[in-house]
Design a binder for these strands. Structure first.
Lengths: 212, 212
DNA sequence: CGCTATCTCTTACACGGTGTAAGAGTTGTA
DNA sequence: TACAACTCTTACACCGTGTAAGAGATAGCG
């Protein structure tokens, strides 16, 4: 994953110094790490964890909320990269969808607390939705492909079905995390539920049963 | 809805005064009203809206979180009452389920912001889950009844299906609220999705199509 | 009606987090 | 080396939470 933000093509940008990028990265890093285990931590603590003063944090991020947003963007990028690594245009759409969920879950599973509070705190739900767009885009495409191939039923729109898939995946994940369902049972219930709501015949379920 | 908390059978309770209950109710009332439109409002503001001092608030609720919890309990009670008013043991389970969702949605729709932040802020998800138990209980029962009558498929557990129903209902509600789907389309998509995941044949969907 | 326990109000303080500000010191880079 | 960029130190104002004590008001009892 390339840092992807230093040589900002902008000609009017007054050229950022090397230690500035280093500081920014350290802060963002500390924020992700610390806020994941203690979401209510103050900027003081974040700064300390980054080996930096609180004022330096404010030098890079105008407010707590901005820092939060940047941290979430970082995690989202990671998830997107993981998703792109699992080639979604290959094989049956049902399998691709399960691979997609697996990739997303593996990344998201690394930041449980942070993600938990993410769609809660951010004040305006619009930014949250936009952040997730790249994720739902890929999901939508897989669903659309499955519908066109006759693998999924086409009466419900890919947009709605993408939302449904995400919600159900979260539901299964939450139930398992809360200990109300064994991990394995949750995965199975999720798979069956998804295939049903997608209108796929259940033979597809048997094929995918090998995965955890 | 009876107040249901004054003559607390407890003999050791030193008898609460009338203005105390009045204050408590006013505070709770103001909290629900105010926090619903401005969730970040301080206790100062809540107290003012209740016509009371901040200290009086602390006399009734030891902390902000306790007040929040009490306010959510109040709303939950209201939702439960609405659900019990729609007799769920009558008629086809699919219809009962839609009535149940309608009742819940009508109540929850009155407190959009409050409910939005509710499952976010509460720090520990356990209390949140317990609060919703009475709701999921009723939902589970309807699902179980439908399964036993052969109306729904029985391969997925009522526990999981209850969770699924709630999540999908929230999804449809959110999509409509965010303007990403017309209200009517969201309701339709929800109905079809629910019946599919419940394993009900789609003839039931046509019957319920009259409701908004 | 009057007494008393209860409740409310006023005032005050401590603490922590957020955000702003200015100046001195340090470090990267031309 | 010299300048610009960056960081650090120190300091302040503001707001929300939570605690504390005492004076004042009121409900409910006999």
């Amino acid at each position: 994953m390339p840092p992807s933000q230093e040589p900002r093509g902008r000609a009017d940008a007054p050229r950022r110094r090397a230690d500035a990028v280093r500081s920014r990265a350290a802060i963002l890093d500390a924020a992700v790490r610390l806020l994941n285990t203690r979401p209510e931590a103050g900027l003081q603590a974040v700064a300390a964890a980054a080996g930096v003063t609180r004022q330096t944090v404010y030098a890079h991020f105008p407010s707590r909320e901005h820092l939060l947003t940047a941290a979430l963007d970082r995690v989202t990028e990671e998830a997107i990269a993981a998703m792109d690594a699992a080639d979604l245009d290959t094989g049956p759409a049902a399998d691709a969808l399960l691979r997609l969920l697996d990739a997303a879950d593996r990344t998201a599973g690394r930041y449980p607390v942070l993600l938990q509070k993410s769609h809660a705190l951010p004040a305006d739900p619009k930014a949250d939705h936009e952040r997730h767009e790249p994720v739902t885009d890929r999901l939508r495409e897989v669903i659309r492909r499955g519908q066109e191939a006759g693998e999924f039923d086409g009466r419900l729109s890919p947009d709605w079905l993408a939302v449904v898939v995400i919600r159900l995946a979260h539901a299964a994940s939450d139930e398992a995390a809360a200990g109300r369902m064994p991990e394995e049972e949750a995965a199975g219930a999720l798979r069956v539920s998804l295939l049903r709501v997608l209108g796929a015949d259940e033979s597809a379920a048997a094929r995918g049963a090998g995965g955890a």
